[in-house]
Design a protein around this nucleic acid. Structure first.
Lengths: 190, 190
DNA sequence: GATCGTGTGGGACACTTCGTCCCGTATCCG
DNA sequence: CGGATACGGGACGAAGTGTCCCACACGATC
């Protein structure tokens, strides 16, 4: 009852929502294509047609623009479980690999960087990780409380390959991740 | 024979080396404590005492300052192998965990971010990963060619826990990583 | 459909920072 | 000691920042 709507927070004036959307979209585009230092009020004004006055009025602290831009990107991975646990996990990792090839993945790198100095962003990352955790835990019918380490073992290798080693995520890697999880799972369940 | 020295590249004039060192040290400090947007020629001049003229003269493109700063940080993890493979791997991961608690770890987040838009930084990350790979592969007496996936499985979970989930790296996590690797290893060797 | 309220666009403004240049000086090297 | 070279300081135009004010247009309400 407290919050009015989900998409447009606060006012329902279409003008507000419109400028907000245009600016944040442009911000994400700049973040992906050029990097954080490219995101500047003047630049956003040129791109969107929104005047500098409006941007400064709505975001008195320009840093908040980037924050809102990366906060709005709540990418819920479309995924429909079906087969057994092993197959579902494999398909989840394949979907995750596909997602890591998408353009908006660059936003994750931005978050990683800013989380080092902005506690709010750090909290954002923790929240995202936790949401994913319960999602995958349920998918794998794994007790949520014991899933913290398992999540790191499952998702970590893909993230490492994408952001640190910067190499392709092979089918073999996914297979080994699944094998390791299933092995450990049977070890625990009996 | 081509390269003259390692530490001081090019000239051996102590004045050049001195300013270079002061500026790059200050850059790393700023990167860790405040973030990329804090690294600016004027700011560096104030911190180091080096004049703006000198900074602009030596780095006509200010972006190169950050690049050199994160490139110079070739942290070779001090590690002396001794016991069996299982124990060595455990101790390596514990050392890695300790390293991830250090302050210069923030530089890694900077690299991850900049690698998205700077091919040179991306190459830097790949090189670092590869150097580590042969190091760990030799430590574990693992064929280097087949170690790519294993490295992701070993290092990935720690990186995920540190930069994405932003939670503590537990002893249990390390133990599970080691278990999974040893399990997979025996599977392959016989 | 007219009127009030509110968000926007445009421009002016002082201020800061950026990047370049020049020159006097200090330091290094032979 | 003397030539070469890097540094420091200051001046400079250009550009960007953040703030303000006012006219305008759009949305909502009667």
């Amino acid at each position: 009852m407290d919050h009015e709507a989900e998409e447009q927070q606060g006012s329902d004036d279409p003008r507000i929502a419109w400028t907000r959307r245009r600016v944040l979209d442009a911000t994400r585009q700049l973040l992906v294509e050029e990097g954080q230092e490219a995101v500047t009020p003047t630049r956003l004004a040129e791109m969107t047609g929104v005047s500098r006055s409006t941007i400064y009025r709505r975001w008195p602290e320009p840093n908040d623009i980037i924050f809102e831009a990366i906060a709005d990107d709540t990418e819920a991975p479309p995924f429909t479980p079906s087969g057994g646990i092993r197959q579902d996990l494999t398909r989840y990792l394949e979907a995750l690999r596909e997602g890591l090839r998408g353009s908006h993945t660059g936003l994750l790198a931005t978050r990683i960087d800013r989380a080092e100095h902005d506690p709010e962003v750090a909290k954002m990352l923790r929240t995202i990780a936790e949401n994913r955790r319960v999602l995958i835990a349920d998918l794998l019918e794994h007790p949520r409380e014991e899933f913290s380490e398992a999540q790191a073992l499952i998702v970590g290798p893909l993230m490492y390959q994408r952001f640190l080693a910067r190499e392709e995520i092979t089918d073999e890697l996914i297979e080994r991740i699944v094998d390791a999880y299933m092995q450990n799972r049977t070890d625990l369940s009996e």
